Amino acid sequence: MLIGQNIAVLGAGVAGLATARALAMRGAQVTVYEKSPEITEVGAGLQITPNGVVVLRALGFDPAAHAMRSSGVRLIDGYMGAQILHLDFAKYKPDSDFLLFHRADLIDMLHEGARESGVRIALSHAVEDIHGDADGVTLNFAGGGEARHDIVIGADGLHSKLRPMLNGPAKPFFTGQTAWRATVPALGGEDAAAMVHIAAGRHVVSYPLRGGTLINIVAVEEREDWVEEGWHHTGDPTEMMTHFSNFCPGVKALLSRVESVSRWGLFRHPVATLWHSERTALVGDAAHPTLPFLAQGANMALEDAWVLSDCIANLPLDQALPAYQARRRARVVKVIEAANANARNYHLKGASRFIGHAGLRLAGRVAGKRMVDKFAWLYDHDVTAQ
Rank of each mutant, 00 (worst) to 15 (best):
L2A: 04
L2D: 02
I7A: 06
V9I: 12
G13Q: 13
G13N: 12
V14T: 15
A15R: 12
R21D: 03
M25P: 00
Q29G: 03
V30T: 06
V30L: 06
T40K: 10
A44M: 05
L46N: 01
P50Y: 08
N51R: 06
L56K: 08
R57S: 07
G60C: 07
A64N: 04
A65H: 09
S71N: 12
G72L: 05
V73P: 02
R74V: 09
R74Y: 03
L75W: 11
A82S: 08
A82G: 09
A82P: 00
Q83C: 06
Q83S: 14
H86Y: 09
A90G: 07
A90W: 03
K91Q: 15
K93Q: 15
P94I: 09
L100S: 14
F101E: 05
A104G: 15
D105F: 10
H111T: 13
R115G: 11
G118Q: 10
G118A: 12
V119K: 11
R120K: 14
A122W: 05
S124Q: 13
A126G: 06
A126C: 05
D129I: 01
I130A: 01
G132C: 01
D135G: 06
G136A: 06
G136W: 01
G136M: 01
G136I: 00
F141E: 03
F141K: 02
G144R: 03
A147I: 11
L158M: 11
N167V: 10
T178A: 14
W180T: 11
W180C: 11
L187W: 08
L187F: 09
E190N: 13
V196P: 02
H203Y: 14
Y207C: 15
Y207G: 15
Y207P: 15
R210T: 14
L214C: 00
N216K: 05
V218P: 10
V218L: 14
A219F: 00
A219C: 09
E221M: 12
R223Y: 02
R223N: 09
E224S: 11
W226M: 04
W226D: 04
E228A: 10
H232V: 03
H233D: 04
D236H: 05
T242L: 01
P249W: 04
K252Y: 00
V258D: 00
S260L: 00
V261Q: 04
W264D: 03
L266K: 07
F267N: 06
W275Y: 03
H276Y: 12
H276D: 04
H276V: 01
S277L: 04
R279K: 10
T280M: 05
L282W: 08
G284P: 06
T290W: 03
L291K: 07
L294W: 08
Q296M: 07
D304N: 11
W306M: 00
L308V: 02
L308R: 01
D310M: 01
D310I: 05
C311P: 02
D318V: 11
Q325E: 14
R327V: 00
R331G: 09
V332N: 03
E337Y: 00
A338N: 09
N340C: 06
A343R: 07
N345T: 09
H347L: 03
K349M: 05
K349N: 06
G350L: 05
G350S: 08
H357M: 07
H357D: 14
A358H: 13
L360R: 14
R361K: 15
A367S: 15
G368Y: 09
K369F: 02
K369I: 03
V372A: 04
K374F: 08
F375E: 12
L378M: 15
Y379F: 15
H381L: 07
D382R: 14
T384I: 02
Q386W: 05
